[in-house]
Design a protein around this nucleic acid. Structure first.
Lengths: 365, 365
DNA sequence: AACGACACCGCAAACGGTTGCGACGAATTA
DNA sequence: TAATTCGTCGCAACCGTTTGCGGTGTCGTT
């Protein structure tokens, strides 16, 4: 008896709904809608949908097939509000248009997707104020955790402290905040530079120039020190005269004279990044030097430029994708083991040498 | 009388809260907490916080300063649930690690930030299934609108139709779906190719080779047709013999022989993208040709490679940032004017010529 | 016939916030 | 003095979902 009624309404709803769908934006169907149409209570619908033992097989069947027909989907907002779990994490980075950072994001995304998390991405454009506001917005939206790479212009850390007080799990990556104890995932610039420089020495270089970034930046300092360390390992002196301060294409051209003046006495160059290395090769080539026959060159991986260079550039690759994955895994660990371990972890990724033509000293390309 | 009581509790709460903050993750404070502590109702607190005229100045003052002290922040989830407005939009793209796409995202982000929107980013990795799931997740999270660039492997469009039925505003950009009527923001590949080819002709080229992408891809087809169109404009014939099918660095090297065989009779090359153009230059240079003295080269902008090339590559820039901004603005228009206009707009961005050394036919670099 | 056991389902509160409406006291007006 | 107005505030419902608990009806058991 009652079954007939229900199915009448059922069919009515179906045809009615589909005709509506053509004309207007129909609000998504809710559990209450289903309950009203089927003449049962929302709680029964809820339980039926998740196979609760209290519900009879018939009711379950009815509710489940109906929900299927009308394409019911639970409202994630309501679920989040009730459970205080959004399955969403926040990412705060200086800029997206940067090969390294977008690679990291890609790694984060892939792990997140596999574990059922969504990612809200905020780009600070190296702006401190925006970093503060972005973090606040993420907290307001009750993200389950946050991954941060700090802006260059951030010198106060109250907004980071604030996260800890709010109980939001945080993992810093790449541009970590030394003043805040937390999980960290970083690339080992020192070791990367040492590997690059060692490689030049292995290739037979006796006197190696370094194109360096400003020493107040961590990467500038660490990469230079890695360079010096490799030299000393091999009883070579670390001569300040061989260190030219330039870290962009433009600054290379601006200091081209200095490079050319030093060129006759060196047989290798380690540049703080790839675009600097490539620009240096071009300056040298224009002045009659042959790479890698006369001078071998190694860069430091900031993208896919190395392959395009002429000759293809030997470089050390920063494993952005791995860093992203590791950071996300660490974060998930903190989110899902609500264990209050004050034990913070630091994961270090050592860059990997990718050997190409530019470092084959003495050979023609 | 009562004032004294309240402030006593006030102070108690303050000291109590701060001591808690040190030890444990304190749950964020809610309107109900404030109401309980201040001995008034949640509705009064809510109204006081937004200067409702029904509330007395004294109460407003009390509530507002207290909220300030305890750093009250409204729960965005609760607001969204009630208002059905999340101030969040979804972005679905094939891959993040791609200069063009990350540039688009940057444009989207900046507009979104200015208008108070957050962005959830999903990367499909050119996977149809993932595209479906990502869209569903965005709808479940009740985003206010969605920006999509389609995956290459998407050949069914039910999930797009589904969005329209759910009443979610959608704007397609770059990889649009021709089968779905909607707002669109695209780059004009045809016109870009025409501009590039025209430029070569202006520089004195009489016979221009084209390195083309597969013709079943829209960009391959449009760019080739733009190339032909420019030739015909200038009474030059569009000779299929001068069209070499290669669109990556690897395919250029694979078909190097074909290119070298044609080289003696051509004085210009238009390549379907920058990396192809750069690889072609390298092949030619290795075979004794001088660029741009013997042969002028123009690429098609897919990144910052052009600057790094030797010689610097003339190219047409796809305005990713502008496309992102425009797409977001269109979307916001649809979200905020809930006017039901079935008028869909298509914005077309014409690439812009960026002239560098590689196209200065006859000159030495 | 009265009892407990069990299957099945609904009520109501909760998550955090908003808002229409009614209540109450005080001040103003007739 | 009685009626009206106004300034303040709280009740309760609502957004969509979950869940503890209590209620109902149908059995079988003694």
């Amino acid at each position: 008896m009652r079954g007939i009624d229900v199915f009448a309404i059922f069919n009515f709803y179906q045809s009615n709904n589909s005709s509506i769908a053509i004309k207007m934006k129909s609000q998504p169907i809710t559990i209450k809608d289903i309950a009203r149409i089927l003449g049962i209570s929302p709680s029964t619908v809820s339980r039926a949908l998740k196979d609760h033992p209290d519900i009879s097989p018939k009711t379950k069947q009815l509710v489940q097939t109906f929900a299927e027909k009308v394409n019911y989907r639970p409202n994630a907002l309501a679920l989040s509000l009730r459970s205080s779990k959004t399955n969403t994490i926040g990412i705060v980075i200086p800029e997206i248009v940067h090969h390294f950072f977008s690679t990291v994001i890609s790694g984060i995304e892939d792990v997140a997707y596999g574990r059922g998390y969504n990612a809200i991405i905020c780009q600070t454009n190296e702006n401190y104020q925006r970093e503060v506001i972005d973090l606040q917005a993420l907290v307001d939206n009750r993200v389950d955790g946050i991954l941060i790479s700090m802006s260059k212009n951030t010198h106060e850390f109250a907004h980071f402290e604030n996260l800890k007080e709010n109980g939001v799990p945080v993992v810093f990556f790449d541009r970590i905040c030394e003043q805040i104890s937390s999980d960290r995932v970083i690339a080992d610039d020192f070791e990367g530079a040492r590997i690059a420089t060692r490689h030049l020495i292995d290739k037979g270089c006796k006197k190696i120039m370094h194109l360096a970034a400003p020493q107040h930046l961590l990467i500038g300092k660490n990469r230079k020190e890695g360079y010096c360390s490799a030299l000393k390992e091999h009883k070579l002196s670390c001569d300040d005269r061989l260190i030219v301060k330039c870290d962009t294409r433009e600054t290379v051209f601006a200091r081209a004279d200095d490079i050319i003046r030093l060129a006759p006495e060196v047989d290798g160059i380690f540049a703080v990044n790839d675009s600097t290395a490539i620009a240096a090769m071009q300056v040298l080539q224009r002045n009659g030097y042959s790479i890698p026959k006369d001078i071998a060159v190694v860069g430091f991986g900031d993208g896919p430029n190395a392959n395009i260079a002429y000759p293809p550039l030997t470089t050390v690759e920063q494993k952005g994708y791995d860093i992203g994955q590791a950071a996300m895994r660490l974060l998930i660990g903190h989110i899902e083991n609500n264990v209050e371990e004050e034990e913070y972890e630091t994961k270090i990724f050592t860059p990997e040498l990718v050997e190409r033509a530019s470092s084959q000293l003495g050979t023609e390309y």
